[in-house]
């Protein structure tokens, strides 16, 4: 790890100002990806701006029509939250199977989304539920947030402060885990808003995406058989030592079908 300066601001304004002022400043949230990358010297920021002292980023509010999660809320907290479990149980259960226990007690939703790892779990829920990402300067719709591999709509210095998820009628997340890292080889989040259905897929492509064929089929009938025979094209899907594009394409269908089964239960 290369040397860096450490800062610990107590509010969002100071954090943003710091990151913009420094040569290569990076926000530090839970540090579950960034610190590993720094250890491997894949990332060498000149300054780390630690967000852990900013109380405003730690709020968690579950209401009947929306769940709003502060950027610095840990996965374990979302998983255990009675409010989230009541409003969007699928979101709580997704948070409960991210990585491993250590990751869940350090990792944050804001960090996960800003990093936009292609195999992270939260992006599937953000797309599947059509969440709104609230930042230090604006609100970004889910559909406009994920750009490409590790790329998001965030501008330099722009900080995610919270994520707001609309409450669906029913939803479920199904994940086929990488046996080593527990990242998603394929994860599918299906949400039914009563006639309108969204399907968010993670792990399969360069970044999370929506599966619109399935959304249409499920909108006309929200049942497992609506998606069971939809063949997803393998073109452009990830290819690595754990899964080929063809296998991932197949898994999208299987996980979507199982997510619908789980949502109906």
């Amino acid at each position: 790890m290369h040397a860096f300066e450490y800062h610990r601001p107590s509010n969002v304004k100071d954090a943003v100002a710091l990151v913009l002022k420094k040569e290569e400043g990076r926000y530090l949230a839970g540090g579950q990806s960034l610190v590993q990358a720094m250890k491997l010297r894949l990332s060498s920021p000149t300054d780390l701006i630690d967000l852990n002292a900013i109380g405003d980023l730690k709020a968690l509010k579950a209401e009947s029509n929306a769940v709003t999660i502060g950027a610095m809320v840990r996965h374990a907290e979302v998983a255990a939250s009675s409010g989230v479990r009541k409003a969007i149980p699928a979101l709580a259960s997704l948070a409960g199977i991210i990585g491993d226990r250590q990751v869940r007690h350090m990792g944050t939703i804001g960090g996960s989304l800003a990093n936009n790892d292609p195999a992270a779990d939260y992006p599937a829920a953000v797309l599947g539920l059509g969440a709104t990402i609230v930042t230090s300067k604006r609100k970004i719709e889910a559909d406009k947030f994920f750009k490409s591999l590790y790329e998001t709509a965030l501008e330099p210095g722009e900080l995610i402060t919270a994520v707001s998820f609309p409450v669906p009628k029913r939803a479920a997340y199904m994940k086929f885990k990488n046996p080593a890292s527990r990242f998603a080889i394929v994860g599918v989040f299906v949400a039914d808003f009563g006639g309108k259905v969204r399907v968010g897929v993670t792990g399969a492509g360069p970044c999370a995406f929506r599966q619109t064929d399935m959304e249409k089929a499920l909108a006309s009938k929200f049942a497992p058989e609506s998606v069971a025979n939809i063949k997803v094209k393998a073109d452009g899907l990830n290819n690595d030592l754990h899964a080929s594009p063809e296998y991932r394409a197949h898994l999208i269908t299987v996980m979507a079908r199982r997510a619908v089964e789980a949502a109906i239960k």
Partner: peptide, 10 residues
């Protein structure tokens, strides 16, 4: 490719 335990599955 399997140089760490995030890729080599024990």
């Amino acid at each position: 490719l399997t140089g760490s335990f995030s890729d080599y599955a024990i």
